[in-house]
């Protein structure tokens, strides 16, 4: 803990262009209005934690950012590229945005090594040797280099999630999206995944995390976004968010989870 306490949050340069910019994003599932006028800017190096009750649209929102879901109104631009139906744009954005899922979504028929090298080889067109070296480097970083030749089914949940993070990082993304990365894990394994995420955050990665790990938010988040009913209710820096929430809905939510 002492070692971590020494680390400092990276400085955010608020003067430049935001790396992610969402303007009045609206989305419907059938007739159900999931996202209502969601607007948010994220600067490079920022760690934004999104929380909220289930069904508040937070997962849908971050899934819109790499076009896993299609928004129907409003604009989203990532790294200066506006998301549209142009498949080249989508492919370009997906190359720059890594994503980690609640259910890990590792490819069960491939080894850990193959899981991580796959996209490097077929999207980044790296030669096999280079991509394998990069994979080992990342596995070292997430602390499981010895599992390279195992299949996902042979790993624990925490190890699988760390492989999933390594898989996303292998594409050298500018932005990482985390969709409840620790919700499916046993308590003993949550920490090992959070440690990897903390390290990433301290390393200056731009991160959007949907999570209920408030300890994580407190320690490393630049801002906390609270969503409810498909809209953003409150955005604040963590100290302010936890100690002095403004909106009644936020207060209620915090009183229930803390």
């Amino acid at each position: 803990m002492t070692e971590k306490a020494k680390r400092e949050k990276p400085k955010i340069d608020h003067s430049g262009q935001p790396i992610i910019s969402c303007r009045a994003v609206n989305k419907w599932f059938g007739d159900f209005h999931v996202l209502k006028d969601v607007s948010l800017d994220v600067m490079e190096g920022e760690v934004v934690v999104i929380c909220g009750p289930s069904g508040s649209g937070k997962s849908t929102f971050i899934r819109c950012i790499n076009r896993l879901e299609e928004h129907q109104e409003g604009q989203i631009s990532v790294d200066g590229i506006e998301l549209s139906n142009d498949t080249r744009n989508i492919a370009e954005i997906r190359r720059e945005v890594g994503m980690v899922f609640q259910q890990f979504n590792l490819f069960p028929h491939l080894t850990v090594m193959q899981n991580i090298t796959l996209a490097q080889r077929y999207v980044r067109h790296r030669p096999r040797k280079e991509s394998e070296e990069r994979t080992m480097e990342l596995l070292d970083r997430v602390g499981i280099p010895e599992q390279a030749n195992k299949y996902p089914g042979q790993l624990s949940g925490g190890q699988q999630q760390r492989v999933a993070i390594a898989r996303a990082l292998a594409m050298d993304p500018k932005i990482m999206l985390f969709d409840e990365p620790t919700s499916a894990l046993d308590p003993e394994m949550i920490k090992e995944v959070l440690d990897v995420m903390l390290e990433l955050a301290y390393g200056g990665m731009t991160m959007l995390c949907v999570t209920h790990e408030m300890g994580f938010a407190r320690e490393v988040a630049s801002r906390v976004v609270f969503m409810d009913g498909g809209r953003i209710v409150e955005v604040a820096e963590p100290e302010e968010f936890f100690s002095d929430p403004k909106h009644d809905r936020t207060k209620l939510f915090l009183s229930q989870i803390l």
């Binding site: 997906r94 899922f101 796959l118 594409m171």
Partner: peptide, 11 residues
């Protein structure tokens, strides 16, 4: 989730 993960990787 499998196709989503693959899509998110840009495949």
């Amino acid at each position: 989730g499998q196709t989503e993960a693959a899509r998110a990787l840009g495949l």
